[in-house]
Simulated assay, not measured.
Amino acid sequence: MAVMTACHSPAGCELLEQGYTILRGAASASLIGGVARDLEPRFAATPFCEGGFYGERTKRFGRLLIRSPLMGDLVMHQPILDLAELALGNWCERIQLNLAQAIELHPGALAQFPHRDQDMWQGSLGEVEYLVNVMWPLTGFTETNGATLIWPRSHGVAALVEQPAEPPIVAEAEPGDAIVFLGSTLHGAGANRSVVARRGIIVSYCLGWLKPYENQWLAYPPEVAKDFSADLAALAGYAQHRPNLGNFEGQCPSVLFGGYPAEPLAAVDALRPDQGALLADHIGRQRSAHSERAA
Rank of each mutant, 00 (worst) to 15 (best):
L15G: 07
L15S: 08
L15F: 05
L16R: 10
L16S: 12
G19Q: 04
Y20M: 11
Y20F: 15
T21I: 05
T21F: 03
T21A: 04
I22D: 09
I22Q: 11
I22C: 11
I22Y: 08
L23C: 03
R24E: 14
R24D: 09
G25K: 02
G25Q: 07
S28Q: 08
A29E: 15
A29L: 10
S30R: 13
S30A: 14
L31F: 06
L31K: 10
L31N: 07
L31Q: 07
G33W: 02
G33M: 05
G34H: 04
V35D: 06
V35K: 08
A36F: 04
E40F: 03
E40P: 00
E40V: 01
R42D: 12
F43G: 03
A44Y: 01
A44C: 02
A44D: 11
A45H: 08
A45F: 08
T46P: 07
T46Y: 09
P47C: 09
F48K: 05
F48D: 09
E50L: 13
F53E: 04
Y54Q: 11
Y54I: 00
G55A: 02
R57Y: 10
K59M: 09
R60D: 02
R60P: 00
R60Q: 13
R60N: 09
F61R: 01
F61V: 00
F61I: 01
R63K: 12
R63V: 07
R63H: 12
L64S: 01
L64G: 01
L64P: 00
L65Q: 05
I66C: 12
R67G: 08
S68V: 01
S68L: 03
S68Y: 03
S68Q: 02
S68E: 00
L70M: 12
L70T: 06
G72L: 06
D73I: 00
L74S: 02
V75Q: 03
M76I: 06
H77N: 13
Q78R: 15
P79N: 07
P79I: 04
L81W: 03
A84S: 14
A87L: 14
G89D: 06
N90Q: 14
E93H: 12
E93M: 08
R94K: 12
R94A: 14
I95M: 13
I95H: 04
Q96P: 05
Q96Y: 02
Q96T: 08
